[in-house]
């Protein structure tokens, strides 16, 4: 399996993913210096600068979540069926290795690459704000949960790639992510504020279908401590039920659900790949 992991890593580097890594690094570096640039250009006190850094950090964490997930989708969506169609697996599958070794090898390879990327990006963001005298350890506390984004979406894309080509696998994964994002960011406030049961059920369903909102809460619990006071507070009206729906808090089993979801997605993809004909 180690050979497949190494091969997947080499392929990832070859597919210009490395270039993407560098571009995001530069973007994060630039982002971290925006508050200082604003302060120097428009003036402002230390407190405003500190808030600016906090916002840059929060936005930086969002960038890391988004791009590490996108990278994982791109690498995983073409890992199985597309490679079979192109003929890459024709000489590898007859080797004495189980299909699960090949599948998990590819999964591990992409996850290692994504982990390295997200860690590198976090390190860049942390160092660049630290040198400005504003170290934020919160982003390191959030990193284990941020890493779950590429794991979740990469696993989903890999499972779909066990029977779909690269374009369809990535399209369906992105569609699932978009559904989860749309439900959490747009449907949730509408469903809560206007108390529409049907929309609330859709939001609830979307969270079970793709637990992105659950993951978001897990990350926020680690980084939102640096949010400026007053930001992201619940509105000063509505019943406790409505407010609880609008601003759900982290539940004890949230992490477990995400882990179970990823495990099931991994196993389903593995099962399909194990049982399918390859030619």
């Amino acid at each position: 399996m180690g050979v497949i992991v190494a091969l997947t890593l080499k392929e990832a580097m070859r597919r210009r993913a490395f270039l993407g890594t560098v571009i995001i690094l530069i973007a994060l570096y630039g982002l971290s210096f925006l508050p200082r640039a604003f302060k120097e250009a428009f003036g402002g006190n230390e407190r405003q600068f500190e808030v600016g850094v906090n916002l840059a950090v929060l936005f930086g964490v969002d960038i890391i979540k988004f791009f590490s997930a996108v990278l994982a989708i791109l690498l995983c969506a073409g890992a199985i069926t597309a490679e079979i169609e192109r003929g890459y697996l024709a000489a590898i599958l007859p080797r004495p290795l189980h299909r699960w070794e090949l599948y998990l090898g590819k999964w591990l390879g992409v996850m290692l690459f994504s982990t390295a990327n997200a860690t590198l990006w976090t390190a860049m963001l942390w160092v660049s704000v630290a040198v400005q005298g504003e170290p934020r350890m919160e982003m390191w506390y959030a990193l284990p949960y941020v890493l779950l984004y590429p794991v979740l979406y990469g696993t989903l894309a890999l499972a779909l790639s066990s029977f779909l080509g690269a374009s369809l696998a990535s399209m369906f994964t992105v569609a699932a992510g978009a559904f989860a994002y749309f439900s959490d960011h747009f449907l949730r406030p509408i469903a809560a504020l206007f108390d529409v049961k049907f929309l609330q059920q859709i939001v609830w369903l979307s969270e079970w279908t793709v637990p992105m909102a659950t993951l978001k809460r897990l990350v926020q619990a680690r980084v939102d401590t640096i949010l400026p006071p007053g930001m992201d507070d619940a509105p000063p009206f509505g019943s406790p039920e409505v407010l609880a729906f609008l601003k759900p808090t982290v539940q004890t089993l949230d992490g477990v659900y995400v882990a179970v979801y990823i495990t099931i997605a991994l196993l389903v993809g593995l099962l399909i790949f194990w049982r399918r004909d390859v030619q």
Binding site: E11, Y88, A90, A91, P94
Partner: peptide, 13 residues
Amino acid sequence: LGFLPEKFQFHDF
């Protein structure tokens, strides 16, 4: 077993 496939694409890098 050794196998040479008819249609293949090797890792050309």
